[in-house]
Design a protein around this nucleic acid. Structure first.
Length: 645
DNA sequence: GTTAGGG
DNA sequence: CCCTAAC
């Protein structure tokens, strides 16, 4: 495994990763992490890591302005803004995967933010701060995300001058946020678990936040420490080995601002299993059939489209008070404030994400494969997925919130009734696999170009940063993870209302999902629209040459036989599907029928347009004739049968 | 998996 | 280009 650091979490345990925020004082930053509970679990990736990274992101945002130079190594990023150039550089470098991990880690640490963001308390909660730091200061590299594994009741206090900004929302005065306050808002209405009390094996996360308090302070000095009161919970909650559902996959999630993403994968990829491969599932697989990957014994398919990329969190927002119990209810009852917004004071919004569902991830392994191999394969697939660069999307009422500058209240997140969802989306930076050229194992990205542009993983070829600037902030690179150990709790397929048909999911997710207890499951009420989730293919206007080839083919085989057209003239153009050709023909016909002044884009020679019209006319007539014959034939049959009777 | 069309 | 219904 490439990923070396894994914080093991009891499967049920929710780890609170503390991600120290910031880059700017990586050195100073102190990260505390709970002890790794199980090394055994290392191989698993915790979904929660994602959250951690998300949280980290939030923190980071606040600090992005003051990004330290530490990023320089990998990113050259200034201020957390992702630059395409950087990405490209990264992608273009086929660096050996192996060494990368450490590097990323460093990045992570630098850029890390604290996962604790999810639960942020105002500094005012002095009471929370305890003198006994359980965790020693982290090394630089490790500072990044450390999950507090097994720690329970951890409170994180973040005092950050910068404020948080998260995808859909921004908290301007972070110092005043207390996410865990009793008043927390329960957005989703979904399941909320009282910390310790409700703790069930399935509790993905809340249960674990109890006894110890995690404090993350990011004051001027920017340092975070965790203080742990007790570690009891941890022990008690060790999930039975058998539980698959809670299996947490450890992923290295790191948040680099998008840049070094690929490396992480590399690491994994490096470990080639030779025959293992992942395929991203493309819509039209058939046309990609020539793709070498297809022949691999093991395929991993990741379907971006559906959403494949989307990780759903089932949880929504739920309020939980840090304290054990009662408070929680109160908050739910109501006191939620709609005030959440730029100036939150004492009206923290608590986000409890029970689980994040990863996108469809189909893994195929030979029957002869060992369980160990299967595990590794899954891990790799997930790691690759996450490592590819993920960005977090926020869904409110099923609708994606694109404006990162919106406040929670503006976004409606302050309302308890809202259905909040987080999605994992492929980040632009997703190109990891290719980097690790050696390993075919995880195929996703590599082919993506060929397989489908559509897939979120935009192939390296066209690196497009679809995301608006603000989204860029959200980008989380998992590649190298910072130690966050979050538990990944798969959504429960059955329970979750989510769109994804369980059938699709052979993915890891479902399996684990089964394990997760009911509590953990909070279905997203609304099915996200695909459009929201999936990434649109990059636009590739047809060149005149292509148009000519298309016209030529259509003249020969006619309209209505797009597959043949494709095979005839675009066999090697993996990015042109027959549907594309059909669509292009449609537009060509339209273009040819309008005045030149009305035409846009690269002008198509009139000669070609004339041919288009001619061919269109010809084949239309041909089709009509066919239909006519058909009708006649039908009529004849009918008449015949009628007469016979 | 392909087609055909609407969006 | 995307999404789907209809084959």
């Amino acid at each position: 495994m490439v990923v070396k650091r894994k914080l093991s979490c009891g499967s049920n345990v929710f780890d609170f990763p503390s991600i120290p925020k910031a880059p700017r004082s990586s050195l100073r930053r102190k990260v505390s992490s709970s002890k790794l509970a199980d090394d055994k679990d290392n191989s698993q990736i915790c979904a929660i890591d994602l959250l951690a990274s998300l949280a980290g992101k939030l923190l980071e945002e606040s600090e992005s302005s003051s990004t330290s130079t530490t990023y320089a190594n990998h990113d050259h990023l200034g201020g957390g803004v992702i630059k395409q150039e950087v990405l490209e550089d990264v992608y273009n470098n086929n660096k050996p995967c192996k060494s990368e991990f450490s590097d990323h880690v460093n990045l992570a640490s630098k850029s890390t933010s604290s996962v604790t963001c999810l639960q942020v308390s105002s500094v005012d909660n002095d009471g929370i701060l305890e003198q006994t730091p359980v965790f020693s200061d982290c090394k630089k590299e490790e500072c990044g995300l450390k999950s507090l594994v097994g720690t329970e009741e951890e409170t994180c206090v973040v005092n950050e001058a910068g404020g948080f900004v998260a995808d859909g929302f921004s908290l301007k005065d972070p110092s005043q946020l207390r996410l865990q306050s009793p008043e927390s808002v329960h957005l989703d209405g979904d399941v909320k678990l009282a910390p310790c009390t409700d703790r069930v094996l399935d509790d993905s996360f809340e249960g674990y936040v109890n006894h110890s308090k995690l404090v993350c302070r990011d004051d001027d000095d920017n340092y975070c420490k965790y203080y742990k009161f007790s570690d009891n919970c941890k022990k008690s909650y060790r999930p039975p080995p058998s539980r698959v559902g809670n299996r947490r996959i450890k992923k290295c999630v790191m948040k680099n601002y998008g840049r070094g993403v690929s490396k992480l994968k590399c690491s994994e990829d490096t470990r080639t299993d030779g025959h293992l491969k992942a395929l991203y599932r493309k819509r039209k697989l058939p046309y990609y059939g020539y793709n070498p990957w297809k022949r691999e014994t093991v395929h991993r398919k990741r379907r971006l489209s559906d959403k494949g990329l989307v990780v759903n969190y089932d949880g929504g927002l739920s309020s939980e008070s840090v304290s054990n119990s009662p408070l929680k209810r109160e908050s739910e009852d109501g006191i939620l404030s709609s005030e959440i917004g730029l100036h939150l004071k004492d009206s923290p919004v608590k986000f409890s994400i029970k689980s994040l569902r990863i996108p469809e991830l189909v893994i195929e392994v030979p029957e002869t494969a060992t369980v160990g191999l299967l595990k590794r394969t899954v891990k790799e697939a997930v790691t690759a997925l996450l490592g590819g660069g993920i960005r977090i999307g926020v869904l409110v009422q099923g609708k994606k919130v694109r404006d990162d500058s919106s406040t929670l209240s503006q976004t409606g997140l302050s309302c308890r009734d809202n259905n909040l969802g987080f999605t994992l989306e492929p980040g632009p930076e997703t190109l990891p696999v290719p980097l690790c050229s050696e390993t075919p194992v995880v195929s996703m990205p590599t082919d993506s170009t060929d397989l489908s542009e559509r897939s979120a993983a935009s192939p390296a070829l066209d690196i497009v940063i679809p995301l608006p600037p603000q989204d860029a902030d959200l980008l989380i690179n998992s590649g190298k993870s910072v130690e966050t150990n979050h538990e990944l709790v798969p959504y429960q397929s059955d329970i979750s209302a989510d769109e994804q048909p369980s059938s699709d999911s052979r993915a890891l997710v479902p399996v684990s999902a089964l394990e997760s207890g009911p509590l953990a499951i909070v279905p997203l009420n609304e099915k996200p629209k695909r459009t929201e989730l999936s990434q649109r293919r990059t636009r590739r206007p047809f060149s005149v040459t292509e148009v000519e080839a298309l016209v030529q083919a259509v003249e020969e085989v006619g309209t209505g036989r797009w597959r043949d057209v494709k095979l005839r003239s675009f066999e090697n153009a993996s990015h042109r599907t027959y549907v594309d050709l059909k669509d292009k023909w449609k537009t060509l016909v339209h273009t040819a029928s309008i005045s030149p002044q009305q035409r846009r884009g690269e002008p198509v020679p009139q000669e070609l347009l004339d041919r288009v019209l001619a061919a269109h006319r010809h084949w239309s007539e041909h089709q009509m004739k066919q239909n006519g014959k058909l009708q006649v034939a039908t009529t004849m049959v009918v008449v015949q049968s009628g007469s016979s009777m």
